[in-house]
Design a protein around this nucleic acid. Structure first.
Length: 854
RNA sequence: GCGGGCGUGAUGGAAUGGUAGACAUUGCAGACUUAAAAUCUGUUGGGCGUAUGCCCGUGGGGGUUCGAGUCCCCCCGCCCGCACCA
């Protein structure tokens, strides 16, 4: 008997793989390529179970595809710019670069023992000038191509992180990292023209058949295409230059129900008024402050200020409507002005009720109906418009159907034109931070904003910076800032803003195809390796990263850095669930607050948990996200040292489908370990068997083996790794009990090892070697199903009567239907139920089922 | 509010419209052991029955079908995303 010792096996095989460079990706014309990519990590310094799961999923695919004969690219890198490094610098006095590179080394050394089939020769780090200099070069190309521009804009300002945030980075009015309430500031910033590509990015979603529908939908909603009518009200007493107010509406069918016009507090007219009128100024100031406070979002009280300006209704110029500044109108959607139709819009209804404005219906047939509404009546967009009241009289009595008809009608009347609007806004990329890719432009007193010359790249971050004062250290670094103007040569100043780190991750997949090239990409390599055939990561990136990356691929295509074929860079996307763990909680804190216990402090007995110390019962909160504050984090390193990497890999794949959360349980991890031991012991047993024994059930074992090959292959192809593992458990049990000959068992166990090899590569490799397999299992071709072995001579068919199972018969697989029917009707249970009668109908599905209908 | 998803044993979860609960955990019983651990064997949806067996059962209600966890309609519950988007 030998012992399964993962620590010894795993280190040994990793060394062999590394020495033989079997995971090194080299372009080759002989084999089809397969590019599998997991979302690269931020180098926090420690891997967690989420990483283990993510990279194990990718590794199963990569190893499987390698065995299937593909030329596999499976790279790894580091998303290594970002705020955490600066925070560490502030807290610990370490330079962000030192901290980051140390973390990369640490994490790499933690990942290596997991035995992933990664091509480490392609490793990249976005914080390294070798990477970001190319980003700077592309930035300059994109300015030239008109894809990037500078504008003065109201931006989201995070007062804690002291930087600007993109709209996508604001959640519930708070910064996505700091959680601080976001303020609005007006700053001059760089923007990507992503909104110009709204329609393309939307249309592109339709081609992404192998993306989760959920992600496509989220992006679709984010892009937020809407069709409507844009038209102008003419004003009667507005300030100079504002004799028209443009509004946008998706409901032109309710236009006759307009009873007021609302403008945003940031609307040019509001801005003009607040200059001379302190009351207006006070109101708009209140709106701006309130616009993002939590209270305002929750209570959502409609506030308005009557400007005294009046406008004429376009269809009834005698009718005048008041113009209000209203707090619920956003300047950056539509035109920043609306017409209010209280009868058919809930917000307008609340507003009208509060300010006592008329409620006029264009849908309800009765004159008084609208006045009696307790809430807005929102008609379906295809509902017939009555237009039977309001100021236009009988003119449109017969009505229109649908929004399109209403738009057409308005256009015909010379009132506005149909337009398409998008919710998606341009991507502000400037960040007032040190630890990011410097924006390679220079501000010259004479020439204005000038891109740096490409031959002067990279614009490297200076090393000698301090973080003892808040703000961006680049601003204070006069020596670094001062540089000759690329255009006139006079002394000028560098831009001190750096790029949003989402820029870094928007093209790393392309860089992996030629990671050491002296241009951002190499067309031949990009052409060969792109697209990513399978991308795997968390659903939390469904909008931000994945939308930016899709845009960036288009921008790279336009600037000649990616082929046209790569504008949708990820052919297939898989979003995996989290690794969760129970929380163990007691209420025994001195201050009455709950205390969270580490799993090691707790004894599990059945479905109850007790403290090891003292034995008092502990409340179990199942399946919660691993969180340091809840003391329910399981460190992969502990698992690896206790059970080995193969056990950790096997477990994260085994219990739940990959797209769902998986709960880490100690018992589950132990079960995985036990199973690997069992497989090991089977091999041991086979090795000790005599060659002379003929054995029994040889054929049955091999049949089962081929069924398993078939089932596991199909399961892996469809991301059903948990199902694949279930089949492998089943086959292991069969093999365990088998009395077949040594040759048959040896064949079975070697196939088992092959089928397990994507999940537990080290153990598989060892079995392969011990059983005399040729070469490495990692590069051995995937087992092929012998179709003939899948067919059984006899099949067991359940017999149903009226859909209820009453028995079963074993019949030859090729038995004709009518004979099966005869046998079924001869069944004791069937005879009993028929009780001498004849069945109405007998349905025979060969190989499946018989149903007797009485 | 809008959009999407999901409800299956004590638990995680399996089931191209065809034997519901694969596989795993937990529990129970047994073997081995002075004992425990490990390992091995059996068992584990509920109910009735000595038993061949019968009844019930995939959140609830209806429908389509020879046959529904699966398809359709209504309702309930949970989860996720977005949200003064005009």
């Amino acid at each position: 008997m030998t012992r399964y010792t993962p620590s010894e096996i795993e280190a040994r095989w990793q060394a062999v793989w590394e020495k033989d460079e079997i995971f090194k990706a080299v372009r080759s014309a002989d084999k089809p390529k397969y590019y599998v990519l997991e979302m690269f990590p931020y180098p926090s310094g420690r891997i967690h179970m989420g990483h283990v799961r993510n990279y194990t999923l990718g590794d199963v695919i990569a190893r499987y595809k390698l065995a299937k004969g593909f030329n596999v690219l499976h790279p790894m890198g580091w998303d290594s710019f970002g705020l955490a490094a600066e925070n560490a610098a502030m807290q610990k006095g370490i330079h962000p670069g030192t901290w980051t590179y140390q973390n990369i080394e640490d994490m790499k050394s933690q990942m290596k023992p997991l035995g992933f089939s990664l091509d480490w020769s392609r490793e990249i780090a976005t914080c390294h000038p070798d990477y970001y200099q190319h980003q700077q070069a592309m930035f300059i190309d994109m300015i030239d191509a008109g894809l990037i521009y500078r504008k003065n804009a109201v931006v989201n300002w995070d007062p804690v992180d002291m930087t600007v945030l993109a709209n996508e980075q604001v959640e519930q009015g708070r910064g996505w990292r700091s959680g601080a309430l976001v303020e609005r500031r007006e700053l001059t910033q760089w923007f990507f023209k992503i909104s110009d590509y709204s329609d393309e990015l939307l249309a592109g979603l339709d081609t992404l058949e192998n993306w989760p529908a959920k992600v496509r939908l989220m992006q679709e909603n984010w892009i937020g295409k809407s069709q409507g009518l844009q038209f102008a009200f003419s004003t009667t007493n507005a300030p100079e230059g504002h004799d028209r107010i443009e509004v946008y509406t998706t409901r032109p069918d309710t236009l006759l129900g307009a009873s007021f016009v609302g403008i945003s507090p940031d609307h040019p007219i509001a801005k003009l008024l607040e200059r001379d009128n302190p009351e207006v100024a006070a109101f708009t100031a209140e709106c701006r402050k309130g616009g993002t406070t939590e209270e305002a979002i929750e209570t959502a009280e409609k506030l308005g200020f009557d400007t005294g300006i009046r406008v004429r209704h376009p269809f009834d110029t005698a009718k005048e409507l008041p113009v209000y500044i209203a707090n619920f109108i956003l300047m950056d959607y539509g035109t920043g002005a609306i017409f209010g139709c209280p009868a058919h819009d809930q917000r307008d209804f609340e507003f009208a009720t509060k300010y006592d404005l008329p409620i006029i219906s264009t849908y309800l047939p009765s004159e008084d109906a609208a006045e009696e509404l307790t809430e807005a009546y929102v008609p379906a967009k295809t509902e017939k418009v009555f237009y039977n009241r309001g100021f236009a009289g009988e003119k449109w009595q017969t009505g229109l159907e649908g929004i399109d008809a209403a738009v057409e009608f308005c256009e015909a009347q010379g009132v506005g034109q149909g337009v398409t609007k998008y919710r998606l806004r341009d991507w502000g990329l400037s960040r007032q931070r040190y630890w990011g890719c410097p924006i390679p432009v220079v501000h010259c007193d004479d020439c204005g904003v000038v891109p740096e010359k490409k031959e002067n790249l990279p614009v490297k971050l200076p090393e000698d910076v301090t973080f003892d004062i808040p703000g961006n250290p680049l601003d204070r670094h006069t020596e670094w800032r001062t540089t000759p103007c690329p255009s006139c040569g006079k002394s000028a100043l560098r831009e001190t803003d750096t790029m949003d780190t989402f820029v870094d991750s928007s093209w790393y997949y392309a860089r992996f195809t030629a990671p050491h090239a002296d241009t951002p990409t190499v067309m031949d390599d990009a052409d060969y390796w792109m697209n990513v055939d399978q991308y795997i990561g968390g659903v939390e990136h469904a909008i931000l990263h994945l939308l930016y990356a899709r845009f960036f691929a288009r921008a790279m295509n336009i600037t000649g850095h990616l082929p046209e074929s790569a504008v949708e860079p990820f052919d297939a996307l898989f979003t995996q669930g989290m690794v969760t763990h129970a929380i163990y909680k007691t209420e025994q804190g001195q201050d009455g607050r709950p205390v969270f216990h580490y799993p090691e402090e707790v004894d599990l007995k059945g479905d109850k948990a007790f403290l090891k110390e003292g034995g008092s019962e502990v409340e179990i909160i199942p399946s919660a996200k691993m969180s340091k504050s809840k003391n329910n984090v399981v460190d992969p390193l502990n698992i690896i040292s206790a059970f080995g990497a193969d056990t950790a890999r096997w477990f994260v794949l085994s219990d739940s489908p990959p797209e769902r959360d998986v709960e880490w349980t100690a018992s589950g991890a132990e079960a995985a370990y036990k199973h690997l031991n069992r497989v090991w012991n089977i091999c041991d047993r086979i090795a000790e068997m005599s060659d002379d024994v003929a054995g029994e059930g040889n054929e049955a074992l091999l049949k089962q083996m081929h069924k398993t090959i078939n089932d596991v292959t199909l399961a892996i192809e469809s991301f059903g790794f948990n199902a694949a593992i279930a089949k492998l458990y089943g086959f292991t049990a069969t093999l365990h009990k088998s009395k077949a000959s040594k040759a048959a068992q040896r064949e079975a166990v070697m196939t088992l090892a092959q089928l397990m090899s994507p999940m537990t590569p080290h153990l598989a490799e060892d079995i392969w070697a011990n059983q005399g397999g040729e070469g490495l299992i990692a590069t051995a071709p995937w087992p092929v199903v012998d179709e003939a072995m899948l067919k059984d001579d006899t099949v067991t068919m359940p017999i149903q009567v009226n859909g209820k199972r009453r028995g079963e018969i074993d019949v030859p697989a090729d038995m004709p239907k009518d004979e099966i029917e005869k046998l079924a009707l001869a069944q004791e249970a069937v005879i009993r139920i028929l009780d001498g009668g004849t069945p109405k109908k007998v349905i025979v599905v060969p190989g499946r089922i018989v149903n007797v209908v009485v």
